[in-house]
């Protein structure tokens, strides 16, 4: 009943406002303003199952009318994350699959263009430094800047970080801030537990904003850790914007190349779960320490 009353109330407010607008007593702009204020007065339902919320239908819902073999369509959809079996309106996508595409792209763009929040860094007690890139646009169009630290970062790291530890962990936003916020809270404690319970000396992890993979080489030169582990946001696809990679390098120097890094990718709740990935990474780091090598050289020793 409460819902119905609210609905009714909204309709009444809206028609009153429209009348006022027609009579020129209200500008369109302020109408919007007044409307949203009126809406805000409507109590928000904390319950997710509330009737008056629009969301996407389940992906399992059959979108093809009268398929020849519905079981086959279901099985095909299960076999690939690709957008198949989505039906059509004429030659165009159905409304829901079009809007779902937009939503997925929006989430992906937000992951790239929004920053990791201050609140997140505080909650996870992560010190924050920045690469040489000064803005997101610069970071995206100038890969060279994301590969080294800003002067201020160099100073902070030199002053605050413990030197000559066995392992230094970096959290790097890379191309997805969402990957950081979604995975680090479970990945990091799992990885730290795995390393510490084996008696490995680990420096306090910290965060690098606008960073790319190679920034770990610059950090290594400052902290002189044996192994640097970068947990970095991957370029989002439409399937997930939360995928994270771990790049591990053993004592990098000027001659270090891409192939010297050991990489574990696809860490997210739909890939390898972050908490399990942490335990796996701890094992890999231990092996790298034992082998005193990473990347191709490490693989050859295995």
């Amino acid at each position: 009943m409460a819902v119905a009353n609210n609905e009714l109330e909204k309709v009444i407010i809206q028609s009153v406002l429209e009348e006022l607008a027609k009579k020129g007593l209200l500008s369109t702009k302020s109408k919007d303003h007044v409307m949203s204020a009126a809406m805000m007065g409507t109590p928000l339902h904390s319950d997710d199952s509330s009737d008056d919320m629009v969301t996407f239908p389940s992906l399992d819902e059959m979108q093809i009318s009268n398929p020849i073999n519905a079981d086959a369509v279901k099985a095909m959809k299960k076999s690939t994350p690709a957008r198949i079996g989505i039906g059509r309106a004429g030659t165009r996508p159905k409304t829901m699959s079009w809007l779902r595409f937009l939503a997925d792209h929006a989430v992906a763009q937000d992951a790239v263009f929004l920053d990791v929040s201050e609140e997140f860094l505080n909650n996870n007690q992560l010190m924050s430094v920045q690469s040489a890139a000064t803005t997101k646009d610069e970071f995206l169009t100038r890969p060279d800047l994301g590969r080294r630290l800003s002067e201020e970062a160099v100073k902070i790291i030199s002053e605050k970080c413990e030197k000559n530890v066995q392992v230094q962990i970096l959290i790097v936003d890379g191309l997805s801030s969402s990957a950081i916020e979604a995975n680090i809270p479970d990945l990091l404690p799992s990885l730290m537990q795995g390393l510490k319970s084996s008696g490995i000396k680990v420096g306090a992890p910290f965060y690098v904003k606008y960073g790319r993979v190679w920034v770990q080489d610059h950090v290594a030169a400052l902290v002189k850790a044996e192994v640097i582990v970068s947990l970095i946001g991957e370029r989002p696809g439409l399937g997930t914007a939360e995928s994270l990679s771990a790049y591990m390098i053993y004592r990098p120097d000027e001659k270090t190349v891409e192939a010297d890094r050991t990489v574990i990718s696809n860490i997210h709740k739909g890939g390898i779960p972050p908490v399990e990935a942490g335990a796996h990474l701890a094992d890999v780091v231990k092996q790298i320490l034992a082998a005193k090598a990473s990347g191709v050289k490490f693989n050859q020793q295995k």
Partner: peptide
Amino acid sequence: EADCGKVLGQC
């Protein structure tokens, strides 16, 4: 059943 055998063992 869930993919967390390694971390559970570690814990």
